[in-house]
Amino acid sequence: MKIVTWNCLQNFKKSFEEIIKEEADIYVIQECENPEISKSEEFKEFASNYYWVGDNVQKGMGIFARDDVKIELVDLDDNGLRYFIPVRVNDSFNLLGVWTNPNLKNKISEYPNEITRYYEQHKDSGFFNEKMIICGDFNCDVSLKNKSHGRNVLKMIDKLSEIGLVDTYHYLNDEEQGEESQPTFYWLLKLENPFHLDHVFAAPGRIKRLEIGDHERWLGLSDHMPIIFEIE
């Protein structure tokens, strides 16, 4: 199964035509509009099998699947944490779409804490397990100058390791947190401002291939590069 996660920098009803060239089974898209408000017939056709969350109809997060892929929303209360979509895929594994977007003043340090809190609240629900996939825009990079943010990122990684999950990019490329050779985000759309904010967590060996989109193709559409991966 092929999955793509991408922060599309809004206006997804236009840029989806480029991302669907990847021919994925599931797309986890941050900063996208609610398909219910779209007047684009092409976008509505693409979004025939989806779940979406957001406080702003123009800027939320959606999980979009092919018509032959079964996605079922799992009833987990987010308790005000933004934004998470928990689904069951093909009655086979759990997928958590993530776009951390805390509604707090001290946002930089709180981004990774949103994921830690969500995990702590639901770790005994049965949803979190070693077969699951967590992916999205975490807004987390230990190289950010805010030291408390870096500590909280490592704490979040340690928590997810309790169920056997690892940051797949770092696992496959044998790179340390904060020393990534491939960025996923370019601040202000400039190549000299790279960060690694987008992540995929899974058990070691669960993902057989992971690719970060090339800036020459994607930077004209978004400040984030898509992550494209395939699971066993």
Rank of each mutant, 00 (worst) to 15 (best):
D77T: 13
K190M: 06
Q121M: 12
K159R: 15
L9M: 05
D77I: 05
L154Q: 11
N34Q: 07
V142C: 01
I133C: 03
M1P: 05
F64L: 09
L188T: 09
L96V: 12
S15W: 06
R209D: 15
F46Y: 13
G213N: 14
R209A: 14
W99M: 04
Y51N: 13
F16E: 10
V87N: 04
D223F: 01
R151Y: 03
E162D: 15
Q58D: 13
I19Y: 02
Y118L: 02
V53K: 08
I212E: 00
H149W: 08
P35L: 03
N101T: 10
E232K: 15
L104H: 09
L210N: 06
E216P: 02
E41Y: 05
C32N: 11
Q10A: 10
D78C: 08
K145A: 08
W6G: 00
P35I: 01
H196Q: 07
K39L: 14
R82S: 12
Y111P: 07
L73M: 13
F185P: 02
K107N: 11
N193V: 06
P102A: 14
Q10C: 08
K39V: 12
R217L: 05
Y50H: 07
P204I: 10
E211V: 10
G164L: 12
K159C: 12
N94H: 15
G205F: 02
N146S: 13
K107L: 09
F185D: 04
E120R: 12
E17C: 08
F127E: 14
P194G: 04
N94C: 09
L160A: 15
H199N: 11
I29S: 01
K190G: 05
S38R: 02
C135N: 03
P194T: 11
K2Q: 15
V153S: 08
I133F: 07
F185S: 06
S143W: 13
P194W: 07
W187I: 06
